[in-house]
Simulated scan of single mutants.
Amino acid sequence: MNTQGSTPLHEQVRSLLMHEIETEHFTEGERLPAEPELCERFGVSRITIRRAVADLERLGFVRRQQGRGTFVSTRHQIMGTMSVSGFADKVVGKGVKESRIMRSEIIPADDKRAALLEVEVGDPIFRLIRVFALDGVPLSIDDSRYSLTRYPGFDTHITAGTSTYRVLREQYGVEFSEIDRQISVGFTNTLTAGWLERPLRDPLLLVRKVALGTQGEVVHTSKVKIVPSRVSLNVVARADA
């Protein structure tokens, strides 16, 4: 266990056990190892193990039976659904939704980003990275970029729970006309594995997005990294009028 990191030990244990349940290292109905065995395995106290298991029970991954032990519940992988057919990508689920800002910075546009956002090289770009979660379990990372030349002061309106699309509409009069998405597969790296509480090199769904306004201007670009065992994608196709 990483005793020097900022993530509490019980959350680290919870994430590792959750991953093992999701990947069927522990199968449905199987009894988890007893507390002393888990303590020895992870090198933590019984209090830490009990908190981690209590979290798993609250999330529906395990069930505790008095006098018998803790057992893996019926498969509980998908926690939320993300629709990728509208303008905004929103995770819908029964749990408590939250978002955390992991990085917020203003950077000059390099050649690649200037071309994507259709701005001049060196123009100020606002980069916003947020992790979205349900009941404290991370589901996705949204890494977005906005032109501060096109939307001056945009960064000052943003907090963890802010709807960026609402700010664009209400503060800058943006009307969206088109969203271009590309869906592919990627893997966690050292940074994103920690943010998503997943193992290193764990598979992810990647949704690259370019949002356009009614004048054809690029409103923003984003890359959404999704834990596929926790979120299902919902794509709706409609016949042309």
Rank of each mutant, 00 (worst) to 15 (best):
M1C: 02
Q12A: 00
Q12T: 00
S15R: 06
L16C: 06
E20C: 15
E24L: 12
T27A: 09
R31N: 05
F42M: 00
V44L: 01
V44N: 01
S45H: 01
T48L: 01
R51L: 09
A54H: 07
R58K: 09
G60I: 11
R68W: 10
T70N: 00
V72F: 04
Q77S: 12
G80I: 00
G86Q: 13
F87W: 11
A88C: 10
V92T: 11
G95E: 00
G95Y: 01
S99P: 06
R100Q: 07
E105C: 14
D110S: 06
R113H: 08
F126I: 05
L128A: 02
V131C: 10
R145Y: 08
L148C: 11
D155G: 13
S163F: 08
Y165C: 13
R166T: 13
V167G: 04
L168F: 09
Y172T: 04
G173H: 07
S177L: 01
E178V: 11
I179M: 08
R181Y: 05
Q182L: 07
T188P: 11
N189Q: 00
G194Q: 09
R198S: 07
D202V: 03
L206D: 05
K223G: 13
V227N: 09
V227I: 03
S232L: 02
N234G: 09
R238C: 08
A239K: 10
A241V: 12
